[in-house]
């Protein structure tokens, strides 16, 4: 029906147009929603690298999303209370600069992904799904019961973190930040999937032996993919913390893992802009169905089920009439 590029361009254009129109119409909340779409889509882009290209069905990406969020929250809370983050072996203070927070969020979620990935990738298939889920639960319980950063109550960031030259408290400017990050993530995913690394990764998904035969260790290949995937999702988490000016263990819950997966699959697995389509549809449904019925989650479930059963290739698959990737 449409070429995938056309669909992608249209999606991105809509994502940009909606906040601009909302700004003109004096509806700043719509901008907040669009920002949420961009951030969730970015989390999905991260997962898509593991899931779409690597065939690694991670049910634990909430761990990275939350760890990224906590990195932002913890640094900001120390900056706000003027207490050092640590005093030994050397003193490190908090910060409210996104440009410092982001690398920390990337590093923290990357390390977490390295540890979880190194253990989980020893297995495959359904084991992998359950183990990633279980590790995310472990992080979740830790966050709930560790009192230093609010535990179950979560951690407020009273003022949104700063970005040089921008007023991040302005919804439109913050949207611009999130949108730029999202585009960057997509770019990484595109470059990665076309690189030799990406090709090998997709090769390993289809036929491990062939990859092994050319002397590539599939374990290391997947681990690297998993870490990159976790890092992108972690950065999305840091942005999400700033969007809400709040971090809590619910970012780490298994429902969050499920939702990130839903974004990817609603949109279409392994498509660069699939998570955008998925996240946009999800947010739209959440808001539209929510006003239809108190039991809107039932309808959401039903719709999701129908998509999985009958709309193979997700939203983009339907729009392009190509249930499978080129």
């Amino acid at each position: 029906m449409f070429r995938e590029t056309t669909v992608n361009t249209a999606l991105v254009a809509i994502l940009v147009a909606v906040p601009l129109v909302a700004q003109a119409a004096g509806e700043p909340f719509i901008i907040t929603l669009a920002t949420k779409v961009a951030i969730f889509a970015m989390a999905g882009v991260g997962l898509n690298i593991a899931l779409g290209y690597g065939g690694l069905v991670s049910f634990g990406h909430a761990a990275f999303f939350g760890i990224g969020g906590y990195a932002a929250g913890i640094l900001a809370s120390h900056a706000q209370s003027y207490t050092p983050l640590m005093t030994w072996p050397f003193a490190i203070g908090g910060t409210q600069q996104m440009l410092i927070i982001w690398p920390v969020a990337l590093a923290a979620s990357g390390i977490a992904a390295l540890v979880i990935g190194a253990l989980s990738l020893r297995t495959s298939g359904v084991y992998f799904i359950m183990i990633t889920l279980a590790f995310a639960q472990m992080v979740f319980y830790f966050a709930v019961s560790w009192p230093a950063y609010g535990g179950e109550d979560g951690l407020p960031i009273y003022v949104r973190d700063k970005f040089p030259g921008l007023n991040t408290l302005d919804p439109l400017q913050f949207f611009a930040v999130a949108f730029a990050c999202f585009l960057l993530a997509v770019l990484v995913s595109v470059v990665l999937s076309r690189s030799r690394f990406g090709l090998a990764l997709q090769g390993a998904r289809q036929n491990v032996e062939r990859v092994r035969a050319v002397g590539i260790d599939p374990y290391r290949l997947r681990l690297v993919a998993f870490v990159i995937s976790g890092m992108i999702t972690g950065l999305a988490g840091a942005l999400y913390a700033d969007l809400n000016r709040f971090v809590s263990p619910s970012m780490l819950s298994w429902q969050t893992s499920g939702e990130i997966m839903v974004f990817v699959i609603l949109g279409g697995v392994g498509r660069h802009f699939g998570p955008l389509a998925g996240a946009a549809l999800f947010i739209l449904l959440e808001h539209e169905l929510g006003s239809v019925s108190e039991y809107w989650q039932f309808l959401l479930g039903l719709l999701l089920l129908l998509v999985v059963l009958f709309a193979h290739g997700g939203l983009i698959g339907v729009l392009t009439r190509r249930p499978h990737r080129d």
């Binding site: 907040t32 999400y240 809400n244 809590s248 619910s250």
Partner: peptide, 8 residues
Amino acid sequence: QKPDVAVQ
């Protein structure tokens, strides 16, 4: 019962 939803 989700803090992020409440904020939004």
